[in-house]
């Protein structure tokens, strides 16, 4: 396994200017390295900037100062489109609200990232079916999101995140919209797949039990990121 970190955050500072013109600092001089295969939980109170940090780590936004390198490639200096190309096929997402396309079946939702990145329909279908099978939805592939339970929708989203076999997977409150039992099932699924595929997992959560299953827990508060050591 390469010794190069998957993510390397160097002296990242980020904030906003509110409506009254006052500057609000969200992240201050953050330093972080995440290694391949790690599972990392980012926790903290509401409004601490967890989602902001996640968006910077995923290259969805760029920090005001500092640099973020994904597999050695800097996000900070790149345009939005260039960052999108860096993400392509290498970074996956699981969202709290599932973000499935309502018009598509479970299978089609999972095929989508493959198709959009130019993989043939046949191959996309084969791979998507395989991943839906792995998340336990082999029998419900032709169902549309509206016909699936919350847990099944999130399983579909997990399959969609893993289908490109990304190096890095971000999960934003993946159990936030689910009841406890279903949440636990999704958590099991995520960690099993993380182990099996060697994908690096970065998740933002309020759920302490979910955070405790990660290799590392990072606590974000007052703009500072502190590693929680058991």
């Amino acid at each position: 396994m390469s010794s190069q970190p998957v993510l390397h955050v160097r002296q990242v500072t980020h904030g906003f200017t509110d409506q009254s013109g006052q500057r609000l600092s969200v992240l201050e001089s953050i330093e972080l390295q995440i290694n391949p295969g790690d599972s990392v939980a980012i926790v903290g109170p509401s409004g601490a900037g967890k989602s902001t940090l996640l968006s910077l780590l995923a290259g969805l936004d760029v920090p005001e100062t500092g640099d973020i390198l994904f597999q050695g490639e800097s996000f900070s200096a790149e345009s939005e489109d260039a960052r999108a190309l860096i993400r392509r096929g290498r970074i996956g997402f699981v969202f709290q609200s599932f973000q499935l396309l309502q018009g598509l079946t479970a299978l089609e939702n999972v095929m989508l990232p493959l198709e959009l990145t130019g993989i043939s329909v046949g191959e996309a279908k084969q791979r998507a079916a395989k991943w839906l099978g792995r998340v336990g939805l082999g029998e419900r592939m032709t169902h549309r999101p509206r016909m699936l339970s919350g847990g099944e929708q999130q399983r579909t989203a997990v399959a969609r995140a893993f289908v490109s076999e990304p190096a890095l997977l971000f999960a934003d409150e993946p159990t936030g919209n689910l009841d406890r039992r279903t949440g636990e099932a999704i958590t099991d699924l995520l960690f099993n797949l993380n182990r099996e595929t060697g994908t690096t997992l970065v998740l933002v959560t309020h759920d302490e039990r979910l955070a405790e299953r990660c290799d590392r827990i990072l606590h974000l508060e007052n703009g500072q990121l502190l590693e929680v050591v058991e």
Binding site: L60, A84, L85, L116, T117
Partner: peptide, 20 residues
């Protein structure tokens, strides 16, 4: 709107998304 943002996370550029 949500789909457009989602496509960008899949790695599609703004131009590709608009084209789509």
């Amino acid at each position: 709107i949500a789909d457009s943002a989602l496509f960008r996370t899949f790695g599609l550029t703004a131009r590709e998304t608009t084209g789509l």
